[in-house]
């Protein structure tokens, strides 16, 4: 069974290699807490699309705002 939180954090830290994955909390907001900018978010969405085949439309970006929300969203969409 895919660990979507782990996948999300892995792709997150590929896009933002200066973020230590061990410090990312479930409720950390990727923009407010982890300081991703809009280009980083697009790169993350593109990476998740390439890896999982899940196309996240712009209107759903709030659904991946934290690792916890993203894990639930990706599990529902990829399943």
């Amino acid at each position: 069974m895919t660990d979507y939180r782990a996948v999300f954090v892995e792709e997150l830290t590929r896009v933002a290699p200066d973020i230590d994955p061990s410090t990312v909390g479930d409720g950390d907001h990727i923009q407010d807490d982890l300081a991703l900018d809009s280009m980083d978010v697009l790169n993350l969405v593109a990476a998740l699309h390439a890896r999982l085949g899940v196309d996240i439309p712009e209107r759903d970006y709030p659904e991946i705002a934290t690792p916890a929300r993203a894990a639930a969203y990706l599990a529902a969409r990829a399943g």
Partner: peptide
């Protein structure tokens, strides 16, 4: 436009 495009093809306002 972005609603119809895959992530790789989206354009940001910036």
């Amino acid at each position: 436009r972005n609603a119809e495009a895959p992530p790789e093809g989206r354009i940001l306002l910036g």
